[in-house]
Simulated assay, not measured.
Amino acid sequence: MEELAGTVLVGESFEPIRGRVVLDEGRIEAVEETNTSSTDIVLPAFVNAHTHLGDSVAKEAAVGLSLDEAVAPPNSLKHRRLAAANRSELVTAMRRTLRFMERTGTVSTLDFRESGVVGARALREAARTVTVEPFVFGSGDPSVLEVADGYGASGANDADFADERAAAGEAGVPFAIHAGEPDATDIHPALNLDPDLLVHMVHAEDEHLERVAAESVPVAICPRANTVLGVGRAPVRELLDHTTVALGTDNVMLNPPSMFREMAYTAREFDVTAREVLRMATTAGADIAGLDCGVIAPGRRAALLVVDGDSDNLCGSADPVAAVVRRATGLDVERVVC
């Protein structure tokens, strides 16, 4: 048995209670209100809902480039850098990014991994020595599903993807696809593929939002990356009013995969509450991938983050949820329990 004490953000509402979380063999045994002198804040560890970890071999290389120049397949700077990197370089670079994510409170990441079976296996190798567990959305031939957790498509305007969608369905794994990043033309075609996850939806309009709601399709948004690439701002309030929305950091070449930075930016720039943002960074991504984490409740996996509520940065904060979302950084992290 182990106990974590302090202000605990409990359940899907992140209700702050003064008390403790009792852990036993990797599970949450109990959540109890009790007197405690601890100034720690205990919350669910983050689930990053969209990354491209392969970009770790090209950090900052795409600064100032357009979306097409930076990341569009098959001839963008990103894909040229991926082709030029040898396996050892790629695995080492991804592992170091995963180590950064580990230290800053992320327990899992939903990663779109390029390069087919070889790429998926490289990410598995990179993750062997860290506690972050990537949920691998593979690419290329449908045979990638033999080693990946799902299929991640670049966009409905890039290819047909009907065979890949069918293969994911047969394998019983999720199919995810980018949509509405450069413009709205690929959103309806993406929805026609009956996806389990849409990524970006920057240019979603009322007709798309109505379909998303009717078909119960969750969305992963990446506000900082959209800003860096100059593609626009997702209608985050409207998306939240229609479906489940999760938060991702997107391309490592553009931004560090810090959920603290992503939360603070989202809370500042959009019409959302701190609780909604924290839910996007934890519960929503976990639910999309079917992970048993993202909520502090008895019986759930003990994937938790402990931050120092009395750090020089957080001391005096009146609202622990707002403090975590708007103010906290990796320097405030005391412990990540995975």
Rank of each mutant, 00 (worst) to 15 (best):
residue 2 E to H: 13
residue 2 E to S: 15
residue 4 L to T: 11
residue 7 T to G: 00
residue 7 T to Y: 01
residue 10 V to Y: 00
residue 13 S to T: 15
residue 14 F to S: 06
residue 15 E to C: 03
residue 17 I to T: 10
residue 17 I to P: 02
residue 18 R to H: 07
residue 19 G to N: 02
residue 19 G to W: 01
residue 20 R to K: 15
residue 21 V to S: 03
residue 24 D to A: 15
residue 25 E to Q: 15
residue 27 R to P: 12
residue 33 E to V: 14
residue 33 E to K: 15
residue 35 N to Q: 14
residue 37 S to A: 15
residue 38 S to M: 10
residue 39 T to D: 13
residue 40 D to H: 14
residue 40 D to T: 10
residue 42 V to G: 04
residue 44 P to C: 10
residue 47 V to A: 03
residue 50 H to L: 13
residue 51 T to D: 06
residue 57 V to W: 00
residue 61 A to W: 02
residue 61 A to R: 05
residue 63 V to C: 05
residue 64 G to Q: 01
residue 66 S to L: 09
residue 69 E to S: 11
residue 70 A to C: 09
residue 72 A to C: 08
residue 77 L to A: 00
residue 77 L to R: 02
residue 78 K to T: 10
residue 80 R to L: 13
residue 81 R to I: 05
residue 84 A to H: 04
residue 85 A to R: 05
residue 86 N to K: 11
residue 90 L to Y: 07
residue 91 V to I: 15
residue 92 T to V: 12
residue 95 R to P: 02
residue 98 L to M: 13
residue 100 F to S: 13
residue 105 G to F: 05
residue 111 D to S: 08
residue 117 V to H: 07
residue 119 G to Q: 03
residue 122 A to Y: 01
residue 126 A to H: 02
residue 127 A to I: 06
residue 128 R to W: 09
residue 128 R to D: 13
residue 130 V to K: 10
residue 135 F to Y: 14
residue 136 V to I: 15
residue 139 S to M: 03
residue 140 G to Y: 04
residue 142 P to I: 10
residue 142 P to M: 11
residue 143 S to F: 02
residue 150 G to F: 02
residue 151 Y to C: 09
residue 151 Y to D: 06
residue 156 A to Q: 04
residue 159 A to P: 07
residue 159 A to K: 13
residue 163 D to L: 13
residue 169 G to Y: 03
residue 171 A to T: 13
residue 171 A to Q: 07
residue 173 V to E: 01
residue 173 V to M: 06
residue 175 F to C: 06
residue 177 I to K: 08
residue 177 I to G: 02
residue 180 G to D: 03
residue 181 E to S: 10
residue 182 P to G: 01
residue 193 L to T: 01
residue 196 D to G: 08
residue 198 L to M: 12
residue 198 L to D: 03
residue 201 M to I: 09
residue 203 H to N: 11
residue 203 H to S: 04
residue 203 H to T: 10
residue 214 A to C: 04
residue 217 V to K: 09
residue 220 A to E: 03
residue 221 I to L: 08
residue 223 P to Y: 06
residue 226 N to M: 03
residue 229 L to Q: 10
residue 232 G to R: 04
residue 233 R to K: 14
residue 233 R to D: 14
residue 235 P to C: 09
residue 245 V to L: 00
residue 245 V to M: 04
residue 251 N to F: 11
residue 253 M to V: 06
residue 255 N to M: 11
residue 259 M to K: 00
residue 271 D to A: 14
residue 272 V to Y: 09
residue 273 T to R: 08
residue 274 A to E: 12
residue 278 L to C: 09
residue 280 M to C: 05
residue 285 G to H: 06
residue 289 A to N: 05
residue 289 A to H: 04
residue 290 G to R: 00
residue 291 L to R: 04
residue 293 C to A: 13
residue 294 G to L: 00
residue 296 I to M: 00
residue 299 G to N: 02
residue 308 D to N: 14
residue 311 S to L: 03
residue 312 D to M: 13
residue 318 A to K: 11
residue 318 A to V: 12
residue 320 P to W: 00
residue 322 A to R: 15
residue 327 R to W: 07
residue 327 R to L: 14
residue 328 A to K: 01
residue 333 V to Y: 12
residue 337 V to T: 15
residue 337 V to Y: 14
